[in-house]
Structure formats: C-alpha cells, structure tokens
Write a protein that binds this DNA or RNA. Structure first.
Lengths: 107, 107
DNA sequence: TTTATATGAAACCTTTTGGTGTTATGTCAA
DNA sequence: TTGACATAACACCAAAAGGTTTCATATAAA
C-alpha cells in the first residue's frame, strides 16, 4: 500500500502517552521545555527527545526567546490525523445502512 | 498525567503504516489473514502479529468460520481516537479568534 | 566578570517492536 | 483415511524506542 505515508510521522508521534500528554498541556498554553519536564516523572533529556519527535511530526513548533525555547502546539498537523480517521466514517455509515436494511428485510 | 490511558492501545496500533493499511483494506470488506498477507511484502506470521495488535486495541474483531478466521473492522474503536483529537478543535477555534482579535486591534 | 539558569548533545543501556523461519494443529476434500 | 490448506504458536534476531548520566554552550543576572 502506501510506502511513503505522509501521516506516518504524525501517528508515530501520537503513539506515546507522554507525547499526547505534552500536546494536551500545550493546548492550554505555550511552554518552554523546563516547564514541561517539571510535570513528568522523567528527566529533561527524555522530555527533549519526545519534543523532538513531536517536532518531526510538525505537531509543535519552537520559538527561541532569549535562552528559552518556547514550544507551541501546531493544530494543522493534528488535522492530518483527523482526516485519515474521517475516511472511515463512510464505512461506519455503510455498516449502519446495511444493518438497517437487514432489519427491514426481517420484517 | 493519565497513567492508565484507555486510548493507548488504539494509538499504539495506529502507529504502524502496515496496520493502518490493513485497516483501510478491511474497510472495503472482511478478510481472512491469508488474503491480507498476500497484499504485503512480508510473511504471514508478521501480518498475524499486526492483527494481534489491532485486536488488542479492539480495532478489529475476529470470527472463526470453518478453518478460516475472518477479520472485521470495528469502527467504534476508531471513534475513540477521533474523540481524543477532537478536543483540540477548541484550541483551534481559540487560536483563530485570537488571531482575529489581533487583526481587529491593528486596524 | 563571575555565577546561575535554560537548554542542547553525546554516549550508553534495557526493553519493545517488527520481522524471520520452523513446527504444530485443526478443518476441508478426495 | 490421507493429503492439502488455513492458521496458530514458538524461538530467535536486528533495529528502534525510551530512558539514563554526563558534559557543553549560550544567555541572564549579581
């Protein structure tokens, strides 16, 4: 099927619970890495790796201000994941209509 | 944050491109493992492992018919992932309104 | 200028992941 | 009953993931 899948770095980034928690945290405000790392039970370098993976998927962007690097959520990339999932809605509708049809025929 | 995340097995399953391709394939019809494995450039045991992970995330169900085991898509689990992503829509709206506000103030 | 702060980067380790090949089991068909 | 088929189950392996500690660098503040 799709060898080169543009959604791959996004779904890869979303696969880890820490990274999803970071995204949720950034939804309530831009934050530097130190702030983020303080909320988790792991070292800062570990959080830095997670941020790097989120950045690879373009789920966040980073802006350097002085010696701080502010991490910001980029909702556009999340939309790519939503779009992929939305394709299954047609399937969902089909199932429902087939079920309805089956019920009709039983009557 | 959430240590026990119910969405975890789902996002974990979605992280692999082969598994996403399998889901897309099952959207067009229920299939036994042999059919699925034939479409990919890997051995059947490898595909079987992918199916096991999809089943752990409850993204598919399996029905044994004779010596075949038919794999079926379960769209309900996909909805869990959609719901998680949809929470960011509020953020998206906020960003837009803030942008609009900033533009207004510039006038 | 010196010191503290915020971060990046490298080297390393363990577990998980995604694949392989081989063998075993249950079912259909001749 | 015998043979072919569809699949499960195992043991194994290399690479990636997720973490650690240690060290280096740039900026702010005293």
């Amino acid at each position: 099927m799709n060898i080169q899948d543009p959604a791959q770095p996004i779904f890869r980034a979303l696969a880890d619970p820490t990274r999803r928690a970071i995204l949720a945290m950034l939804a309530s405000g831009d934050r530097p890495i130190g702030d983020i790392a303080a909320k988790f039970d792991m070292t800062r370098p570990a959080v830095a790796k997670h941020l790097a993976i989120l950045k690879e998927g373009d789920l966040i962007s980073v802006e350097a201000i002085g010696r701080e690097r502010i991490n910001k959520l980029n909702p556009a990339a999340l939309k790519t994941a939503q779009d992929w999932l939305n394709h299954f809605d047609h399937f969902w509708d089909d199932r429902l209509s087939k079920l309805k049809q089956a019920v009709e025929e039983k009557k």
